[in-house]
Amino acid sequence: MRATPPVEDLGEGLWSVPVPIPGNPLGYTLVYVVEDPRGPVLVDAGWPHEDAWRALTEGLAAIGTGVAEVRGVVLTHFHPDHSGLAGRVREASGAWVALHEADAALVRRLRAHTPEEHRDLQADRLAEAGASPEEVARLRADPPRMAAPEPPDRELADGDLLDLARRKLRAVWTPGHSPGHICLHLEDADVLFTGDHVLPRITPHLGLYTLDTDEDPLTTYLGSLTGLAAVPATRALPAHEHRFSGPAARAGEIAAHHEDKLERLAALLNARPATLWDLSARLPWARPWADMGATARRMAAAETAAHLRTLERRGRARRTPAPGGAAGWTAPAPAPGPAPAP
């Protein structure tokens, strides 16, 4: 577990308030405070937990303000370690909460189902991926995930400016990690809040949770990484780990990592056909497959599915539907060579 760093004055009217994520190896979310004459605006809000709430409120007090003074919360994306406390901040202060329109639409869809329904749907998808009955039962026995966040007050589109009095904070749509993930360019301070899109050491989760869709989150993400080259910011303030310089250069490193993973996966397919679950178990991960819990394996399989979808779009993987059973994946047959000369 990472040690939680202290509250920091970053200069130019910016502060970093680390908010813990209890029981999660990420350790904490870095909530950023942007000073504004009408009240501070938060970039992300943190995990929904009493320890996180205490850290957020004490951190705001340490910089000379309070949760009741918060004027707005802009979320880089809807995941609970970013959005979880936004509703509570809104209740305490009357602050607006802003989220990209694509994630806002996803939140509305998620709220139409209970956490138990979502868990059971994911278990059904594990069976379709080729997981054993024991593995599927293990996921069904897990406690359901927390409910989806409340809908935002304001929906953002690419290029929108946030409502700040003396600053220019612009939304940069960077889909991939979530459909509506945004970075935020503070144009008057050469700063890019990168959320989870670009992190200094690790890479964000990219998951395809159902194959019954045309979505291709990895290709979308790679395009978003390329787009960062057009953002004139050299200082990156990510939501996890630590600050760094050169977000566009780091984006190139992350893209190369995923291209390497695509090659590894293609090599497995060239060796023999396999199910999604089998391929996931044979890929390298931060933790050995045998040590992963049910939820971690589900996320690994979703990430493998995202890479398979990209290989499929590139003509390097083919899915064989199997009604009533697990679908198989194989490398496409080589194109026939020229006919021999008579």
Rank of each mutant, 00 (worst) to 15 (best):
R2N: 02
T4R: 15
E8I: 08
L14R: 02
V17M: 03
P18Q: 01
G23N: 06
G23A: 01
L26S: 09
G27E: 00
Y28K: 00
T29I: 02
E35A: 13
G39F: 05
G46E: 01
G46V: 03
E50Y: 10
D51N: 12
D51G: 13
A52P: 04
W53A: 15
L60G: 07
I63N: 08
G66I: 14
E69I: 06
R71Y: 01
H77N: 15
F78L: 15
H82L: 15
S83V: 03
G84P: 07
L85D: 06
A86R: 03
G87P: 01
A95Y: 05
H100W: 13
H100A: 14
E101A: 13
D103R: 15
A105S: 10
V107G: 10
R109P: 05
L110P: 00
L110I: 04
L121I: 02
Q122M: 11
D124Q: 08
L126G: 05
L126W: 07
E128G: 08
S132M: 11
E135H: 07
A137K: 10
R138L: 10
D142N: 14
P143A: 04
P144Q: 13
R145W: 06
R145S: 09
R145Y: 09
A147Q: 14
A148C: 10
P149V: 12
P151A: 15
P151K: 07
P152W: 11
D153R: 03
R166P: 07
R167M: 10
L169R: 01
L169F: 10
T174C: 11
T174Q: 04
G176F: 05
G176P: 00
G176E: 01
H177D: 15
I182G: 00
L186T: 13
E187K: 10
E187R: 14
D188Q: 04
D188E: 14
A189H: 08
A189R: 11
D190F: 08
L192C: 03
L192P: 01
D196N: 13
V198P: 00
P200Y: 05
R201A: 11
I202E: 09
Y209S: 09
P217S: 07
T219H: 13
T226D: 15
G227I: 00
L228V: 05
A229W: 07
A229K: 08
P232G: 06
E241D: 13
A255M: 00
A255N: 01
A256R: 13
H258R: 13
D260P: 02
L262Q: 01
R264Y: 03
A266M: 13
L268M: 07
P273L: 02
R282I: 00
L283Y: 06
L283Q: 10
P284T: 05
P284D: 05
R287D: 11
P288I: 08
G293Y: 04
A294N: 07
T295D: 13
R298S: 14
A301G: 12
A301L: 14
T304K: 06
T304S: 10
A305W: 09
H307Q: 14
T310L: 14
T310N: 05
E312K: 01
G315K: 08
A317Y: 02
A317V: 00
R318Y: 15
P321H: 03
P323W: 04
G324Q: 09
G325R: 09
G325N: 06
P332S: 11
P334W: 04
P336W: 08
P336D: 07
P338L: 11
P342V: 11
